[in-house]
């Protein structure tokens, strides 16, 4: 942010965060690259997955939580790979145990392998169960404003519609729906999934999103650490542009230099 402007922090479930860019930890070459990219992104909230421990592995094998220590970052466990509400709830409970009681989770319940599109029926059921169990639920969902409203009514602390399919890099395919979701929501709205490059992250923020969550756009860039820095700037630029308010669009040209005083007048 500029020296002369201090934005209010991002507020999610009573917690405050300086950065409006949330990043994933998947698809990096190794944990060193993961840590470098996260540092360059400036992210405060970092998401990860929960999986069966490889038994019989070398006990000295590096652990993601060493590269991204819970003391320094707000770790956001996700339920990626879950196709039922039941599996998502189990995963969140395991994550809460893993993080010593930390209750902020990213809920995603997927519909099928080909699209990784959210199954909103299972998502709604899981959200209800998790919230009743004391979780703060940031929820990945479709860009359907009615589903978004229902998830907020159930008590989700952030609504995270997809911009386009997970890992597709197709950007924000329906900015009008994202706008509808933002306009009605009283909790933070984040575009989660689909961002491919910096301009798309800026667009999400210009639409009025409170933050953006991404993984592949950084991890699959030719130079992930460089892209992480680009995304940090894009999210900040988009946020400032949103707050500043864009100029009105006009049908005709309007000169920036005055007519008066031209030498041929």
């Amino acid at each position: 942010m500029s020296d002369f402007f201090q934005d209010s922090p991002l507020r999610i479930a009573g917690r405050e965060f300086a950065s409006r860019l949330l990043v994933g930890t998947g698809k990096y070459r190794d944990f060193d690259e993961t840590a470098e990219a996260i540092a360059a992104s400036g992210a405060d909230i970092v998401t990860f997955a929960v999986r069966r421990t490889n038994l019989g592995q070398d006990a000295g094998e590096p652990n993601l939580l060493d590269a991204v220590p819970p003391e320094r970052f707000t770790l956001l466990p996700n339920t990626a790979g879950c196709y039922t509400a039941k599996d998502a709830v189990r995963t969140c409970k395991l994550a809460r145990e893993l993080l010593d009681g930390h209750n902020l989770v990213k809920l995603e319940v997927l519909g099928d392998d080909a699209t990784l599109y959210p199954n909103v029926v299972e998502t709604l059921a899981a959200a209800e169960t998790l919230i009743a169990d004391g979780f703060d639920v940031m929820v990945y969902t479709s860009d359907d404003p009615i589903v978004a409203r229902e998830l907020e009514r159930l008590g989700c602390c952030a609504i995270m519609p997809l911009g386009s399919l997970i890992g597709s890099g197709h950007g924000i395919q329906n900015p009008y729906n994202i706008r509808l979701i933002i306009e009605q929501a009283e909790v933070p709205v984040l575009v989660d999934a689909g961002i491919g490059t910096a301009s798309e992250a800026a667009l999400a923020m210009e639409l009025g999103c409170d933050a953006v969550l991404m993984n592949s756009a950084i991890a699959h860039a030719r130079q992930p650490v460089l892209m992480a820095g680009a995304m940090k700037k894009a999210v900040e630029a988009g946020r400032e542009a949103f707050l500043a308010g864009r100029m009105p669009r006009r049908q005709s040209a309007e000169p920036s230099s005055p007519f008066a005083g031209r030498i041929n007048a």
Binding site: V23, G24, T25, G26, K27, Y28, T34, T47, F48, A49, V50, R51, R52, T53, L55, N63, L64, L65, L75, P77, N78, A80, L94, L98, I166, L213, M214, N215, S216, A219
Partner: peptide
């Protein structure tokens, strides 16, 4: 019995 840990993911 399930034993799980954190791995990279988005």
């Amino acid at each position: 019995v399930e034993v799980v840990h954190a791995i990279g993911g988005g």
